[in-house]
């Protein structure tokens, strides 16, 4: 795989957006996107956590799991690494920068179990990215996820007061909106061809 990290970064945002093409990280995406402000906080947290956990997981994978021949345990180990590092991050942020904690830190527990974070860690292994590529891909995916949730939050604040068929109120209409957004993002897929 010899794709420039720079291209991977943009591809992760637009052409292979982790939320809109893989539909990963849906639970927090649907539940938090009611408001612009909290969506932004959650988005930033996802960017932050994705970058850090993917870097950590890459190091753990290539310097621990491969030499120890326990690659098949990657699912379990990745989840443990993600959970532990998110917890640690939360503690550090809470202790040293209370202001940052109130905008970002409180979202950290919500995304420990976010499948986008786990999904990206698995993609980077399957696609055999090197360390730099991984960082670029993870940051890009985080920003892509944030872009998607911000767009949905914008749309949801607008349709809040509109007449929506009773059965579709809430997650129903959000899923339909997400589907249409995903269709729009398919339009980007011709620009760069990155899996």
């Amino acid at each position: 795989m010899h794709i420039s990290p720079f291209i991977l970064f943009w591809a992760a945002i637009f052409t292979s957006n982790v939320l809109l093409t893989n539909f990963l990280g849906m639970c927090s995406y649907l539940s938090v996107s009611r408001e612009m402000e909290s969506s932004f906080g959650l988005g930033i947290a996802v960017v932050f956590v994705l970058t850090i956990t993917c870097a950590l997981n890459w190091l753990v994978y290539y310097y621990l799991l491969v030499p120890l021949h326990i690659v098949y345990l990657q699912y379990i180990i990745f989840i443990i690494v993600i959970a532990a590092s998110v917890q640690l991050l939360e503690l550090i942020i809470e202790r040293f920068t209370p202001t940052l904690y109130y905008t970002l830190g409180i979202f950290l527990p919500l995304i420990t179990v976010n499948c986008a974070i786990f999904g990206v860690a698995l993609f980077m292994i399957i696609r055999q990215y090197n360390f730099l590529q991984t960082i670029a891909y993870a940051t890009g995916s985080g920003i892509g996820w944030m872009l998607a949730i911000l767009m949905l939050a914008g749309i949801r604040t607008r349709i809040k007061d509109k007449m929506i068929p009773a059965g579709l109120v809430g997650p129903g209409i959000s899923l339909i909106v997400t589907g249409i957004m995903a269709l729009a993002f398919v339009g980007f897929s011709g620009i760069v061809n990155v899996q």
């Binding site: 326990i70 180990i77 443990i80 532990a84 809470e94």
Partner: peptide, 22 residues
């Protein structure tokens, strides 16, 4: 053993962090 060692290592870090940060 190897996977347990990794988990225990992470758990220890967290325990210490809890103790000194929280």
């Amino acid at each position: 053993g190897a996977s347990a060692a990794i988990s225990i290592f992470l758990a220890l870090i967290l325990v210490f962090a809890q103790k000194y940060l929280n």
